[in-house]
Computed example of a mutant assay.
Amino acid sequence: MVMLLPFAIALATAIFSLFEKSRAAYACWGVMLAVCLLWFDHHATTHLPLSF
Rank of each mutant, 00 (worst) to 15 (best):
21 K>W: 00
10 A>T: 06
35 V>I: 11
16 F>P: 09
42 H>T: 02
38 L>I: 06
1 M>D: 07
26 Y>I: 09
10 A>V: 05
26 Y>M: 07
43 H>K: 03
39 W>T: 13
51 S>E: 14
19 F>S: 03
47 H>P: 03
5 L>G: 03
5 L>Q: 10
43 H>C: 10
10 A>K: 09
30 G>T: 10
21 K>P: 00
50 L>K: 02
6 P>E: 01
48 L>I: 12
3 M>P: 01
25 A>N: 11
23 R>A: 08
50 L>C: 08
22 S>P: 00
30 G>K: 07
7 F>K: 09
23 R>Q: 15
31 V>W: 05
43 H>F: 12
2 V>K: 12
44 A>W: 13
49 P>N: 13
36 C>M: 05
37 L>I: 11
15 I>T: 10
46 T>I: 08
9 I>A: 03
23 R>T: 09
25 A>S: 15
25 A>E: 10
27 A>Q: 04
26 Y>A: 02
9 I>Q: 00
25 A>I: 11
27 A>L: 05
13 T>Y: 05
39 W>F: 14
24 A>Y: 02
6 P>C: 04
13 T>F: 04
44 A>H: 07
26 Y>Q: 05
44 A>T: 11
29 W>V: 04
41 D>G: 02
36 C>F: 00
35 V>L: 07
9 I>V: 09
50 L>G: 06
44 A>L: 03
35 V>D: 02
19 F>G: 02
30 G>M: 07
25 A>P: 14
12 A>L: 07
26 Y>S: 04
48 L>R: 14
31 V>I: 15
5 L>T: 15
10 A>F: 08
6 P>L: 04
38 L>E: 04
7 F>V: 06
8 A>L: 09
35 V>R: 00
50 L>F: 13
3 M>I: 01
49 P>C: 10
1 M>T: 03
43 H>S: 13
41 D>F: 11
40 F>N: 11
42 H>W: 11
47 H>F: 15
23 R>K: 11
40 F>I: 14
52 F>S: 09
20 E>G: 05
33 L>R: 05
34 A>F: 14
34 A>Q: 10
2 V>H: 07
42 H>F: 10
5 L>D: 09
7 F>Y: 08
20 E>D: 15
13 T>I: 05
38 L>R: 02
41 D>R: 04
21 K>V: 00
21 K>Y: 05
2 V>D: 06
20 E>T: 07
15 I>H: 04
13 T>Q: 09
19 F>E: 03
8 A>P: 00
4 L>H: 00
39 W>A: 15
9 I>W: 01
39 W>Y: 15
24 A>T: 07
40 F>E: 13
17 S>P: 02
29 W>G: 14
20 E>Y: 09
